[in-house]
Amino acid sequence: MKVKKYFRPRDLNEFHRLSAENPDHKILAGGTYVAKMKFPKVDTIIDIQDLGLKGIKEENGDIHIGANVTFTDLIEAKLSYCGGLVGQVSSHCGPITIRNIATIGGNVMAGYHWNDTTPLLLALEATLMFTSDSGVKAVPVSSFIANRSTYTGLLLTSIILPSKYKDAKPFYKRFARTRSDIPTSIFIVVNNEEGDHITVGSATVKPVRIMYSADDEFLKNTLLPRLNEVKFMDDLRGKPEFKEKIVISQYREWKEK
């Protein structure tokens, strides 16, 4: 990356103007991903720290999280929403030096599916709020996962967690080589009026959310075939067979509870 220009716009109008004037720009939040990557075409950095995207607030039971909120902010906010799940997941998003600067917006937008926040947001049926010079767009996280490239270049301003999971009692299991290593498998169960919903992330190429049905063969007939459809990942953290075994053990642990 040969950066020739660095901007820190003060408001959204200035952000949109600078984005339009500099087509080869990169949005910069905490920088823990951007600073490591090469991005050969990028010549301009647009740092969004002054855009006021740092708030966490509750509105009619929904939780609104600004895209530039860091994982440390999320831990320190001690949200009681969904049994404190957001803080719990945030505490695993890298070591403290990363969590102090890495943002939830940057984590969602970094372009990979193995991270900790995508399965969390999918489990909670979150809505991503994007803005462009043509207006604001509310996107369910499931649509974002399905068509990620559609949203490249748009500014994520906030994430909304719906009130329906406010009092849910989640089950959350994360398997990683060390506490702060990236996850090998994430298994989340949340319940709403329809029943239990299982989300599996990191182990597979894309996270998957599926409704549980009280069927003795649910694992064999429903969950594993669905995960195999989106494919278990083969990477330095393990072979597909290994990852499948982890998911099975996480599932069994939930069932025993």
Partner: peptide, 28 residues
């Protein structure tokens, strides 16, 4: 230079961060 070791750590606004992953402009 990848945020893994912490030998470049400094404190910014009371928080420990890796200076190898921060653009100078972010610290302004």
């Amino acid at each position: 230079s990848t945020g893994d070791c912490g030998s470049c750590a400094v404190i910014i606004n009371g928080k420990l961060v890796n200076s190898c992953l921060i653009f100078a402009g972010q610290a302004d």
